[in-house]
Design a protein around this nucleic acid. Structure first.
Length: 561
RNA sequence: UGCCUCGUAGUGUAACGGUAGCACCAGAGAUUCUGGAUCUCUUUGUCUAGGUUCGAAUCCUAGCGAGGCAGCCA
């Protein structure tokens, strides 16, 4: 596979579409590749769109071409400006530092071509290949189903021309007339049974205002917009497969000058434990089941971003799943893997305690503080090290102590030993409980020679746990996220909302090592043994908020159920 | 029902008439101051039936299964 413009480390995928493009390039069919990403501005972009963006920009990037972003805004009653801004922000974020140089016009608007679309339509009427019809919608559907021709089908060209002009002039109410392509009412493919090209909509358009009262249908507008922009490859999802003959009919009927765009379809993204349709995502937002489009549990691009997923991880995911015509269901584990793989390499390690349990080291002097060396990233020597304070009173995670542990439990238990990461081996001597029988404090003794570099530093202790010094720790709100749905296919049957995971969000007050006070918004941290965490935009100078992007893999938790 | 498309380990994806690979997941072991990471190993696959061919995952036919379309949505 050719990789003329590969300048970053994102691997170059191979798939049937890239094979086609490469073949055409080799044959000298195109001077330059031009793709496009044409979202309808009626919702936020989700991870399925990310797949499409990575495909369209990926091909532009790999073959030295351009990718346009075009708002497909042909329906004035459904689209809003608010979405244009979010779409642009999401796309720019996703391609930044990778294919941003391949971004063509942005944002372009289908509605900017309405004049030209109209001229083409007039031309089509002149050629006797379109006619004005007045059948009501239901009857049009019925006739198309049974393959029956409309009485208006044989209307003379001159009359069609006049009526179409009057449609444009606003002389008819909504739904009174349509412009229909004159193709073949007996065609096996229903999209060739005289599809509607224009409908009347007396409605204000978010981009063209009140200039128009007739609006082109998707097939007409999209095909001609592709042509007008010089798109070489129009890549869309499988549901448009049956539209391709119409796409080609439009280009050919107008006898447009080559080069003509070529439509190729691929399978949309499906992921387990999630819903992908815009309609369902809107429901989650409007019913208040999530906090908004950018709720970190949402698989919107803005939600993933807020969750802490990076654009590069998303791109790696898109690369891993590939492009085919098979409507597959991808496992969520694949997304999780892409995130962990990157963060393991790049995330600085920190110590944080999610559910603090007080530990007193009884043989450690009161008031004494040691600064211990802690490695920032064992996967990256260049990341260096930092100091963390150790003192007599600490917090460990409540989950790292069990009074009655199961077999092979490596962590702290009464009379047992555990290593405190970067510090001493301690032994639990006494368990202090409150009146209710809850464990509130552990009294331990440390092997004072067991510190790194110490006489007994090489002692083999099975378990190592994280901790923070009680008096030095800083507070942070930590938001633990889990998958939004409890079943692999929430929209398979029944109401997808009945499968919402009641435990998809848990909010805790954590104790963090002091260096986290300087945490940066663009850095992903690994809280050792817990997972990867990202700064949430709710954070304020004195009030840190972290989102758990993803847990570490935990084979112990898996085995012990 | 009609039309279109697609069927390769559990999942996803390669193999372009010539040894069925890879990734994820799962399991076993080694190692480890993260039950992480890393390393080694393991289970499991060409939907079915015919045909063409020296040779078929690949080409042909039929069947079966899955998805899509049948809006004046995109």
């Amino acid at each position: 596979m050719t990789t003329p413009n590969q300048t970053d480390s994102t691997p170059v995928p191979s798939d049937f579409i890239r094979d086609i493009v490469a073949g055409e390039m080799k044959a000298g069919k195109h001077a330059q590749i031009r793709t496009r990403f044409p979202p309808e501005p009626n919702g936020y972009l989700h991870i399925g769109h990310a797949k499409s963006i990575c495909l369209n920009f990926g091909i532009a990037h790999e073959f030295g071409g351009i990718c346009n972003i075009r708002m497909d805004d042909t329906n004035p009653t459904k689209e809003e400006t608010e979405y244009v801004d979010s779409i642009m922000a999401d796309v720019r974020w996703l391609i930044d530092g990778w294919a941003d140089k391949n971004l063509g016009g942005a944002p372009l608007y289908t509605s900017d071509y309405f004049d030209k679309h109209y001229e083409f339509a007039v031309e089509l009427v002149r050629k006797g290949k379109a006619y004005v019809d007045e059948m009501p919608a239901e009857q049009t559907d019925e006739y198309r189903r049974i393959g029956k021709e409309s009485p208006s089908r044989s209307r003379p060209v001159e009359e069609n021309l006049k009526l179409f002009a009057r449609m444009k002039a606003g002389e008819f109410p909504n739904g009174a007339k349509t412009l229909r392509a004159k193709i073949d009412m007996q065609a096996a493919n229903v999209w060739l049974r005289d599809p509607v090209l224009y409908r009347i909509r007396h409605a204000e358009h978010h981009h063209t205002g009140n200039k128009w009262c007739i609006y082109p249908m998707y097939d007409w507008a999209h095909t001609l917009s592709d042509y007008l922009e010089g798109i070489t490859h129009s890549l869309c999802t499988l549901e448009f497969e049956v539209h391709r003959p119409l796409y080609e009919w439009i280009l050919n009927s107008l006898e447009l000058k080559p080069p003509l765009p070529r439509q190729i379809e691929f399978a949309r993204l499906n992921l387990t434990y999630s819903v992908m349709s815009k309609r369902k995502l809107i429901q989650l937002v409007e019913d208040g089941l999530v906090t908004g489009w950018d709720d970190p549990r949402m698989l919107t691009i803005s939600g993933l971003r807020r969750r802490g997923v990076t654009a590069s991880a998303l791109r790696a995911f898109a690369y891993n799943i590939g492009i085919t015509k098979y409507p597959s269901l991808n496992e969520m584990a694949l997304l999780e893997h892409a995130v962990r793989e990157e963060f393991n390499r790049t995330a600085p390690r920190r110590l944080a305690v999610l559910r603090p349990l007080k530990v007193v080291i009884t043989n450690y002097p009161e008031g004494r503080v040691e600064e211990l060396d802690a490695v920032n990233n064992p996967e990256d020597q260049a990341a260096g090290s930092r100091k963390i304070p150790f003192s007599r009173e600490l917090f460990i995670d409540a989950a790292d102590f069990m009074e009655v542990p199961p077999p092979k439990y490596f962590r702290l238990k009464p009379g047992g030993e555990v290593r405190l990461k970067y510090a001493y081996v301690i032994k639990c001597d006494e368990v202090v409980k409150d009146a209710g029988g809850n464990v509130i404090e552990l009294r331990c003794t440390a092997d004072l020679e067991s510190k790194s570099g110490g006489a007994t530093s090489s002692r083999k202790i099975k378990g190592t746990i994280h901790w923070v010094s009680a008096s030095h720790a800083i507070d942070a709100e930590v938001r633990l996220y889990d998958r939004l749905f409890t079943v692999p296919e929430p929209d398979a049957d029944g109401d997808f909302k009945s499968f919402l995971n009641p435990n998809s969000l848990e909010i805790l007050n954590a104790k963090c090592e002091p260096s986290l006070a300087d945490a940066a918004a663009d850095v992903r941290y690994q809280f050792e043994r817990l997972g990867y965490f990202a700064f949430d935009l709710d954070s304020k100078p004195k009030k840190l908020v972290f989102n758990r992007t993803i847990t570490l893999k935990d084979t112990w938790a898996k085995k012990s159920g």
